[in-house]
Design a binder for these strands. Structure first.
Length: 562
RNA sequence: UGGGGCGUCGUCAAGUGGCUAAGACACAGGAUUUUGAUUCCUGCAUUCGGAGGUUCGAGUCCUCCCGCCCCAGCCA
């Protein structure tokens, strides 16, 4: 297989696969799987795994399965299954007819367990959970054998069958593998294979009251599906000997487990447990809150799936624990949106401007290009009149040196329109707040006219007051101010560290007339403000609500800070 | 003091003994610009956790040391 891009380098997993292809280890096959547990929503960390697994399959003309690892019914729900499938599809991947559930293998897994018992490799233990822990030993001291370890095969078979029949309460019996209680690898100290769980399963209902553990399920499921490369995260490295042990003892097809480092992103948390906590404690509106690093949150925020895939491509795959800069994700989002979104004007903190020398009842239709970088994007008309809104930030009564927006006596260009000059500042008598600017315009300076060559430093976005439509605009910032919110030592209480400025709702923003009819998911660049999308949840017909996806890069903000 | 991993630029990350250690993001300058956006240039590791050694030649091989991460669920 030739790489289509000779400049890009291969990661260590690709190297392994290419070596396996060369040696015909799996008869030239590449078959991966993405195996989420349906106990939460997918986040950007899962996207890395999805892109890796599905991407490898595509690259090497192989296949990738979607398999729900649903062996613990007490934490799993159908709601999550649906959401996960939606998210994987949205990201742009397709599992065709290869949708699997570990629970489909419960019969087969039970049979495998019986086989191990018959080989003398597994036994039913009746130590309590606490005793099992005690007998396991510690990191530095070996464990001790359970007194029930040497039961006869027949006795184990009978007991295991009775476990399945529901004769024992939770915690009274477990099935354990007989490996090595002195192993330095704790996973090999007679791991539990089956436990009693008198809980209905979202797919198998009440059929079972014993459920296999992850370790006894994952490898066998991979084996049954003919997976070649079983890619998982680093914390499972210690499980690989166990993964291999089961397949060897069972004498069934052996896929190869490969571990890579999970994604960490600064300013965000990527742990299902903590994300669930944010949802449950209502620090966010739900799993799809636009501030969440979940795929559903990013979708609602306006991140294009292409940008997320690009990000996953760029971060690479390796084995060292690392934390990727959030700025890289934002860069990918901007890069995509810059190419694809129409430029429109919106004013979120309006300041009234009256053009004194512009006729009272005149309205002009000005031509505005939709995307300067893309001539095919076309243009639209925008109304210009005597009374306008500009952004409050774009005026300063007493400007610093490098400020080249509007100020008393200064000139700026209004985008697509005329050059105006600030003649007078009107303030509120009581508060002293600037409430209106009286300006004049230069009729010769109209955009597109022969006389528009005159240069001014600043160009502002604006809206005609009579034509502007009101709209709610939501501005988002990092959910956490701390660069490393996952650090328990720094942030023992997660909720407390949530950035109180992570959401700002602007109720009284204004948008161009035609944006009134924008529909959920539509994406735009609000000139000079950032990229925004129409919120799917809160928007109603004719009254769109906009989410700020990401700001534009802002050099001025950096200068102003100094 | 057990077992398993990892240490290359601020952040990711190529590099599989042989030209001056890729690339991206970030950052800093400059040019163009009716978005302080975009685009375009330019700069940004004499050095690869440290110390020895092998070699004509070491980020890559060997030895020792240091640091960081994971494992003691009947979670995945």
């Amino acid at each position: 297989m030739q790489k289509d891009d000779s400049e890009s380098s291969t990661n260590f997993i690709q190297n392994i696969i290419e070596e396996d292809l060369k040696t015909q280890k799996f008869e030239g096959r590449v078959h991966t799987r993405f195996p989420p547990e349906p106990n939460g929503y997918l986040h950007i960390g899962h996207a890395k795994s999805i892109c890796l697994n599905f991407g490898l399959a595509t690259q090497y003309s192989g296949k990738c399965n979607l398999r729900f690892d649903d062996t613990n019914p007490s934490r799993e729900e159908e709601e999550y299954v649906k959401a996960i499938m939606e998210d994987v599809r949205w990201l742009g991947f397709d599992w065709d007819d290869r949708l699997y559930f570990s629970s489909e293998y419960f019969d087969q897994l039970y049979e495998y367990a019986v086989r191990l018992i018959q080989k003398g490799c597994a036994y039913v233990d009746e130590l309590s959970p606490e005793q099992i822990r005690e007998y396991r030993g510690t990191l530095t001291e070996p464990g001790r054998n359970s007194p029930y370890r040497d039961r006869l095969v027949e006795e184990n078979l009978d007991l295991f069958e009775r476990m399945r029949a529901g004769e024992f309460a939770e915690g009274e019996r477990v099935l354990r593998a007989k490996i090595d209680m002195a192993s330095g690898n704790l996973n090999l100290r007679d791991p539990v294979l089956y436990r009693v769980l008198k809980v209905a399963h979202h797919r198998t209902g009440d059929k079972w009251c014993i459920y296999p553990m992850y370790d006894f399920t994952h490898g066998q499921s991979d084996s049954l599906e003919g997976i070649t490369h079983s890619i998982c995260t680093l914390e499972f490295e210690d499980h690989r000997p166990l993964y291999d042990w089961f397949l060897k003892e069972l004498d069934i097809y052996r896929p190869q487990q490969i571990e890579f480092a999970r994604l960490n992103l600064n300013y965000t948390i990527l742990s299902k447990r903590k994300l669930l906590q944010l949802v449950q404690e209502k620090h966010v509106s739900g799993w799809d809150d636009p501030r969440m690093p979940t795929l559903s949150g990013m979708r609602r925020r306006g991140y294009p799936p292409e940008a997320i895939r690009d990000f996953c491509e760029r971060i690479g795959v390796a084995k060292s624990n690392s934390t990727v800069d959030f700025a890289l994700l934002e860069h990918c989002v901007r890069e995509n949106l810059n190419k694809t979104s129409s430029r429109v004007m919106a004013v979120i903190r309006p300041l009234k401007v009256v053009i004194e020398n512009y006729p009272e009842d005149q309205v002009e239709e000005l031509i505005a290009e939709n995307n300067p970088g893309d001539p095919d994007a076309g243009s639209r008309k925008i109304p210009f009149s005597r009374v306008l809104y500009i952004e409050q930030d774009d005026f300063m009564e007493d400007p610093p040196k490098k400020f080249f927006r509007l100020a008393p006596g200064r000139e700026v260009r209004l985008k697509h329109a005329y050059i105006i000059k600030c003649e007078q500042v009107i303030k509120d008598e009581n508060t002293g707040e600037v409430v209106e600017l009286r300006c004049t315009y230069d009729p010769e300076s109209k955009s597109g006219s022969s006389m528009d060559g005159r240069k001014v430093k600043g160009t502002l976005h604006w809206l005609s007051v009579a034509h502007a439509q009101p709209a709610e605009v939501r501005l988002y910032n990092h959910l956490f101010l701390n660069e490393n919110p996952a650090d328990e030592k720094e942030n023992p209480e997660l909720g407390v560290s949530v950035n109180s400025d992570s959401l700002e709702i602007i109720q009284d923003g204004f948008i161009e007339p035609f944006l009134k009819d924008a529909v959920g998911g539509d994406r735009f660049q609000f000139l000079r403000l950032g990229y925004f999308c129409v919120d799917n949840e809160s928007s109603t017909s004719g009254a769109p609500v906009f989410n700020r996806t990401v700001t534009l890069r802002d050099t001025w903000a950096k200068i102003a800070k100094k």
